[in-house]
């Protein structure tokens, strides 16, 4: 498998060109976020007119814009994502453990239902979901639409199947003797789960958290339907969509807003690159 010098150089050139292509849009967002509106239109590719002073000015314009309400949207997205991820990991682990360790007819039926549901596209449930949530909310007196608890509830419902599927595959590989030994020592089943099984799930919980986290943070359709385009509560993608709609072609506002929206993901990726890449691959292979 030795490479001669010629092909190796050619490969490097190709690799660099592709990297330039994939990174070019990010570069454009950054440099144009640093310019005034007329400089963006006049020279979108060059650095002419770009300055850090203008960057902070643009970002300030976006953040203080009352139509955008950046921090409120950012906070909503962060809360929804974090709570959904914690609950999905906890409830998903509990459900997967029960399904895995009880070979009854019921656990098989539940598991098969979860797996079959993964093929259901969101479009086929979304319309009835809104009316169901509205009716349930009216009936029990807790707002399910336009509310953070409602959207977390929906993410538990939609993310549950994949989470259980991946976690079950992992729990199958944990020797059952561990649990038998704990039971002989007088450990209750719930104690066995929380003290022995759950800590062992750490690597696979990292995987599902990455998969679910990328989905929930970037998801647009579900929050836009449940929270409404002009509702009081917005997640970041919904807020960006509404903001762009009201400032068509104002690239000096849209691009810094896009920059702010993608920045958390990019920072996270730089910090936890290895885990994210592994998580994405493992999730797909299972």
């Amino acid at each position: 498998m030795k490479l001669r010098k010629g092909p190796a150089t050619a490969l490097i050139v190709v690799a660099i060109l592709v990297a330039a292509y994939t990174l070019f849009p990010f570069f454009l967002v950054v440099i144009n976020s640093m310019k005034k509106a007329n400089d963006i239109v006049a020279n979108p590719v060059s650095l002419a007119g770009a300055s850090f002073a203008q960057l902070s000015q643009n970002i300030q314009n976006v953040v203080t814009n009352s139509n955008f309400n950046f921090w409120a949207a950012f906070g909503t997205s962060a809360i929804v994502t974090i709570i959904s991820l914690i609950l999905l990991a906890l409830f998903g682990g509990m459900a997967a453990w029960v399904i895995c360790r009880n070979k009854t007819k019921w656990s098989t039926v539940i598991y098969m239902t979860f797996i079959a549901s993964m093929i259901i596209p969101f479009q086929v449930v979304m319309l009835a979901l809104i009316s169901t949530f509205r009716d349930v909310g009216n009936f029990i007196g807790i707002k399910m639409l336009q509310s953070i608890p409602g959207i977390v509830f929906a993410y538990l419902g939609f993310g549950g199947a994949m989470t259980v599927f991946i976690l079950t595959g992992f729990i199958k590989g944990i020797p059952y003797e561990l649990e038998e030994a704990a039971a002989i020592d007088g450990c209750s089943p719930e104690g066995t789960f929380f003290r022995i099984i759950f800590p062992l799930l750490k690597p696979v919980i990292t995987t599902v958290t990455i998969l679910n986290g990328m989905w929930i943070w970037n998801d647009y359709l579900l929050p836009s339907l449940m929270l409404g385009q002009n509702g009081p509560v917005k997640t970041l993608p919904v807020a960006v969509q509404a903001f762009v709609g009201s400032y068509v072609k104002r690239w000096d506002l849209i691009l810094p807003a896009a920059l702010l929206a993608i920045l958390p993901m990019i920072i996270l990726f730089i910090i936890a690159q290895k885990q994210i890449i592994n998580g994405m691959v493992e999730g797909a292979i299972k």
Binding site: L87, F91, G92, M94, A95, W97, V98, I99, N102, I110, T113, F114, S117, I120, V124, V125, M126, L127, A128, L129, S131, T132, V136, F153, A154, L156, G157, F158, G160, A161, T163, V164, S188, P189, E190, F193
Partner: peptide, 29 residues
Amino acid sequence: HRGIINFIFLFPLLFTFTVTVIIPMALGI
């Protein structure tokens, strides 16, 4: 006790799954 724990452990996800996927799916069709 084991059965009760199984029920409590399955309940949160099954409940949310039923309300967000199964019921809207059936209603939608």
